[in-house]
Design a protein around this nucleic acid. Structure first.
Length: 859
DNA sequence: CAGTGAGCGAGCTTCCGCTTGACTT
């Protein structure tokens, strides 16, 4: 028996059918080993290494630590069993960097003692598979090196830079080679929108009739001077040309009045041949784009549906950057076109598409209907859900159209003019398009992100007319226009932009979109991707401190370097050394430490906002807020950054706060308010305004905001209360409500009170009694140790298990250490605790921190 | 982002790219 391993189970099933008896075809289900994802993934043997956090030994030639992820263990076990019965192993993973790497990892994990052959194919047809089996090759270690370099670089980037964001922006944020430029693209577009100033312009639209019919035309020039239109303005609202005339409403109305009785003549009719070729077949990115535009699918939904179609044999593999079709697929497409539309709808020779995508690895075919004869959408629709059938139809149409003839026709440009009462010459123009042979357009028209552009493709017929023919203005109307800011990215257009930059891979486009939303960098408003204020802070930090890493060309340059590693012109270790430690330029380590030292959190979290004197926009722990002197007001989550105009900001700052006035304080005459704050409801004496501090007090938990009375509020505001003076020392004793609840205080000495109401009732004697008691540590003293383990055999100090805010821990009175994941309170022994404590002491010493002595056993 | 007093300590978050089921609700 010969064992063949491919990446995908569905592919394994297909190939098994082609190879027949004597072969067992199985799958690896993607990568089988990877760097440890987190501390829990690191094997015990390596936990102590300083580099365990990274999973890469940066001091020793970046040696990676590989582990088999939990969800792959079962399959690896299965493969190990199979290999025992096999006489030969064929590694048939994709022929690209990642596929070669999977093949190598398989040999490392399975350790086969039988002959191992590497076989590759780019299309799944019986001939191609047979040929691949008959002409195996060796594993290409240099290609594996290139993959390993890519993997390590991504890990170092992600795991070194993310902590900088945790410290300076917000915990749990992330940075990476792919996601960070993606966020930057979205933020950059929002910045453009914020800078954008609309420009208004007017023109005149006319309806004209000639002998053969009527048509619409737009005023294009007055006395030979071109009328300004949308393309003549820049994004700051300025006009970019001096030789055009800008019409305002009055100007446009003047033109209409002037032309009231004018006679018009056709001045020129120019026609040019029109020809368009079909689009190439789908690859992952274009499938996501078109499914987004035409079916309103998200990238993720498109991929889920495509996966289902693939597994059930409807389409070929859906994660591909290739646009090429197998010979048999081309033949099938052409035959289907002839059958459905006729022979004139296929060109004489087949169309061959070659990928122009940066970094294309071309391990697969384009996405097309599976099989040697394509089932038509009508044939499959019955057995499929609506979404499945719609996506199949899209794939089918695009594939068939890609082998069809060009669309051919004529485009026509007409100019006509007349003289106004004032003697001023006015010229109008109109354009039309007539398609004489639709070719591929019969089957497929690509969608567009821009609705105006979509109209461009449509046929617009003009009536036949000739030069010097008379035209009558049936109607002339003024029309006002405004320039529009550049549109926000959609999932589809962001995927396209990333692909154009060579960032990300077909298998990751959908997850990139997901990640940047999960991290709170981007949110969706309809189908538009809107960057959060956090994204602005993060991008700013990265731009200032990791300029090269978020450069849009970084991945493209990395890919060139990886190609050189795959070619043998360059070596992995020196490359990673230069990236990490620097080489004539600062390395990653230096950039990270500089960012930690120098970056100013306050500055990074100050966001772009202009137009209001004394008002700044900041991003804080509780989200974005506007600050004006003492006043602070939160910015609602659903406001997009470019919508926060000075007018909107003023509105927020002036908005009634929802505070309730309970009445006036009889002593000061000031208003008493209930407000809602960070720590819950509180009462305040006097309105904000002059910057003076206002006394406040938290509303007791036993009180309700709705029924709170002025009397209760005044009582609350009477805190802190002086209870009296210490009978011995004369020190003042007060009671107050603090962040840990009610307490009594004498100098620096404090004790908690049991209830809030005691704040009003406690007498001096009671306060003295409470203060005389030893300080109770919350939890510890109250609950006592969970378990007493007795004397540590190595130190002699008494060890107990206690419960803390981070869960159970052992302590000898000097050093504390949390129980590990594998420990439980019940199973804890003094021997185990002794080991944990020794480790902790060692670590403290290594970090130069003081190690406190423990306490001996009592008695 | 109202202000206010402590204590004893920890470990985690995160990358990109290959692939599917196995989970829970």
């Amino acid at each position: 028996m010969k064992l063949v391993i491919v990446e995908s189970p569905a592919k394994a099933r297909t190939i098994a059918g082609y190879l027949g008896a004597g072969f067992v075809v199985e799958s690896s289900i993607g990568h089988v080993r990877d760097l440890p994802r987190n501390a829990a993934d690191v094997p015990v043997s390596h936990k102590k290494e300083a580099w365990a956090r990274l999973g890469v030994d940066t001091a020793n030639d970046f040696k990676p630590l590989y582990v088999v992820p939990a969800d792959k263990k079962k399959q690896i076990g299965h493969l190990k069993k199979l290999i025992k019965e096999a006489e030969e192993l064929y590694l048939a993973t994709d022929e690209d960097r990642e596929g070669e790497s999977i093949a190598w990892h398989l040999t490392e994990v399975l350790k086969p003692r039988i002959p191992v052959k590497r076989m590759v194919f780019h299309e799944i047809t019986p001939d191609a598979i047979r040929h691949a089996v008959d002409s195996p090759r060796e594993l290409d270690r240099r290609l594996v090196d290139a993959q390993e370099t890519r993997r390590i670089l991504d890990r170092l980037f992600g795991y070194e830079v993310s902590p900088v964001l945790w410290k300076l922006v917000r915990p749990k944020l992330s940075a990476g080679r792919v996601q960070s430029p993606a966020i930057r693209i979205v933020v950059d577009r929002e910045r453009e929108r914020m800078r954008f100033r609309a420009a208004a312009y007017w023109d005149v639209a006319g309806e004209f009739s000639v002998a053969a019919g009527t048509f619409g035309a737009i005023l294009s020039a007055l006395d030979g001077v071109r009328i300004a239109s949308g393309k003549d303005f820049d994004r700051e609202g300025g006009i970019t040309r001096e030789d055009v005339m800008l019409l305002d409403r009055a100007g446009a109305e003047g033109v209409v009045a002037d032309l009231d009785e004018a006679a018009f003549t056709i001045r020129s009719v120019e026609s040019k041949p029109y020809r368009r070729s079909p689009y190439p077949p789908f690859r992952t990115s274009t499938l996501q784009q078109e499914a987004g535009r035409k079916l309103r699918f998200t990238s993720q939904h498109t991929m889920r549906v495509a996966q289902r179609l693939y597994e059930n044999g409807y389409i070929t593999y859906m994660r591909t950057d290739s646009v090429s079709l197998s010979e048999s697929a081309i033949a099938t497409a052409r035959a289907q076109v002839i059958e459905m539309y006729g022979r004139e709808y296929v060109p004489d020779s087949p169309r061959i598409y070659i990928s122009k995508v940066k970094n294309a690895q071309e391990a697969h075919e384009a996405i097309r209907p599976a099989g040697d004869t394509f089932r038509t959408p009508d044939q499959v629709r019955r057995g499929l859900t609506r979404d499945d059938a719609d996506l199949y139809e899209l794939v089918w149409k695009r594939t068939v159209a890609s082998q069809m003839s060009d669309a051919v026709g004529e485009s026509v440009q007409v100019r006509l003019g007349g003289t106004g009462a004032s003697g001023r010459d006015a010229e109008f123009s109109a354009s039309g398009k007539v398609i004489s042979f639709p070719g591929f357009l019969r089957a497929y028209v690509e969608g567009s992100d821009d609705p105006d552009a979509e109209l461009e493709d449509q046929e617009r017929r003009l009536p036949p007319m000739s030069e010097r023919e008379r035209a009558v203005a049936e109607r002339l109307e003024v029309a006002g226009h405004e320039t529009k800011p550049p549109a926000r990215y959609t999932e589809a257009s962001l995927v396209k932009r990333l692909e154009d930059l060579g960032i990300g891979r077909p298998s990751t486009y959908a997850s990139i979109i997901q990640t940047i939303q999960d991290r709170g960098y981007v949110w969706k408003k309809g189908s538009a991707l809107v960057p959060s204020f956090t994204a602005f802070s993060a991008v700013r930090l990265l731009e200032e401190h990791f300029t090269d890493l978020v450069d849009y060309g970084f991945t493209a340059r990395m890919e060139e370097d990886l190609d050189e590693i795959a070619d043998g012109q360059r070596k992995m270790v020196p490359y990673l050394k230069a990236f990490y430690f620097g080489n004539g330029h600062p390395g990653l380590v230096e950039l990270v430490s500089k960012a930690f030292d120098k970056a100013d959190a306050r500055e990074i979290n100050t966001l772009p906002f202009e137009g209001l004197e004394g008002v700044v926009l900041r991003s804080g722990r509780y989200g974005p807020y506007l600050e004006r002197g003492e006043d602070r007001v939160g910015v609602p989550e659903d406001i997009a950054p470019d919508e926060l105009t000075p007018a909107r900001a003023t509105e927020l700052l002036e908005a009634p706060s929802g505070d309730r006035v309970l009445g006036d304080d009889p002593v000061t005459g000031l208003a008493v308010l209930v407000r809602s704050g960070r720590f819950g409801p509180y009462v305040q004496l006097g309105e904000n305004g002059d910057g003076a501090k206002r006394p406040t007090a938290s509303v007791f938990k036993s009180m309700s905001v709705e029924t709170l009375t002025l009397e209760e509020a005044l009582q609350l505001l009477s805190l802190p209360r002086v209870v009296g003076h210490d009978l011995q020392t004369g020190e003042e004793i007060t009671v107050a409500n603090g962040r840990y609840g009610p307490y009594v205080k004498r100098g620096a000495d404090t004790r908690s009170l049991a209830t809030e109401s005691e704040l009003f009732t406690v007498t001096l004697e009671q306060a003295m009694t409470i203060l005389a008691q030893p300080k109770r540590r919350r939890g510890q003293a109250a609950k006592g140790p969970l378990k007493d383990l007795g004397a540590d055999p190595s130190t002699g100090w008494n060890v107990v298990v206690r419960d803390g805010k981070f869960g159970p821990y052992v302590t000898d009175g000097g050093v504390n250490v949390s129980l590990r994941r594998e420990d439980t309170v019940e199973r804890m022994t003094v021997e185990r605790a002794s080991v944990l404590l020794a480790e902790r002491r060692e670590k403290l010493e290594a970090e130069g921190k003081p190690v406190k002595a423990g306490l001996p056993p009592v008695g």
